[in-house]
């Protein structure tokens, strides 16, 4: 395989050798690993983009409610507030709302695209689709962004983890923010190295973040963490694009994130036994849900 890579350094080398973008390496790699043609791979990603856009729109325009009735509607509220005078700025506030919208839709048993997981599925579509509206990016640009995000996500999957049960929330919303930051940089014309710098900066911001979902559900704190992850991605991309680099190289940041993840005790890795899940309120909510009848339409 000419376009396979195990590390960020190898990925950069491939990009520089042929003067191509990360997304182009990832697309060429995809045609090498399976029987998918380039056209088929792009069409499949276009389908993912379509479902992503539907999930953003649904969460921002309808009052969704989760099965547990714990969540829904907050994304819509934040989006409207974003039209006023938010401290975080219109674009950031809207992107955060869109990220939350997807995870609210997910919790309501709506259709989403895992990116890289269901619990972190809001950050990538929320940020890309919202910024594309304010900046006039085309679907072709967004699809390229998704391929470059996929490359960064794959580096974490190969060298660390993208599972909250294995390495905490840093491996889910953290990785999603890193993927998104890299996509933003590539679409904005940054170099492959700047993409990985942005990804490294995003992960460094939340290194060690635990996975402590109340009642074991993908709602609290996951929905708001997707909103915060959107802001993390945007600012990390800005830092990289203005020329700020990561003092610790991307590959070493990935290793350290995984080393920290393995040190996180099992109570804080998706078992709902520690952190927010173990607070008096968290426990009460879990007890209420256990009593809930399963039969509700």
């Amino acid at each position: 395989m000419a376009y396979d890579f195990e590390t960020g350094a190898e990925l950069i080398k491939l990009c520089e050798k042929e003067d191509i973008k990360i997304s182009e390496v990832m697309l060429r790699r995809e045609t090498e690993i399976g029987d998918m043609t380039r056209e088929k791979a792009v069409a499949e990603m276009r389908l993912n983009l379509k479902v992503m856009r539907e999930s953003v729109n649904k969460g921002l325009t309808t009052k969704v409610e989760s099965v547990s009735r714990l969540s829904g509607g907050e994304a819509m509220n934040l989006y409207r507030y974003g039209d006023l005078d938010p401290f975080s700025g219109h674009e950031t506030c809207h992107a955060a709302a869109a990220a939350m919208a997807v995870v609210e839709v997910n919790a309501s048993m709506g259709r989403i695209v895992a990116a890289p997981t269901a619990g972190a599925s809001g950050i990538l579509p929320g940020v890309l689709i919202e910024t594309s509206l304010s900046r006039g990016w085309t679907d072709e640009q967004l699809i390229e962004g998704l391929f470059s995000a996929g490359a960064v996500g794959m580096l974490f999957a190969k060298n660390a983890s993208i599972s909250g049960a294995a390495a905490g929330c840093q491996a889910e919303t953290g990785v999603a923010a890193a993927m998104t930051a890299a996509a933003l940089v590539e679409i904005s014309g940054g170099t492959p190295m700047q993409c990985l710098d942005a990804a490294a900066i995003a992960i460094k911001n939340i290194e060690g973040l635990v996975c402590d979902p109340v009642a074991g559900l993908v709602e609290c704190p996951c929905i708001k963490r997707n909103g915060m992850g959107a802001a993390n991605a945007l600012l990390s991309a800005d830092m990289a694009l203005c020329g700020i680099t990561s003092l610790i190289p991307f590959d070493e940041v990935v290793s350290s994130m995984y080393a920290v993840g393995r040190e996180i005790r099992p109570e804080y890795r998706e078992t709902a036994k520690g952190g927010l899940a173990a607070t008096p309120t968290g426990r009460q909510i879990a007890a209420n849900i256990k009593r809930m009848s399963g039969q509700r339409d």
């Binding site: 995809e30 499949e44 695209v113 890289p116 599925s121 990538l124 995000a149 996500g153 993208i162």
Partner: peptide, 11 residues
């Protein structure tokens, strides 16, 4: 790449 961006699923 579709193991990372995907699957499309009902949450």
């Amino acid at each position: 790449v579709f193991d990372i961006i995907g699957p499309r699923m009902t949450g």
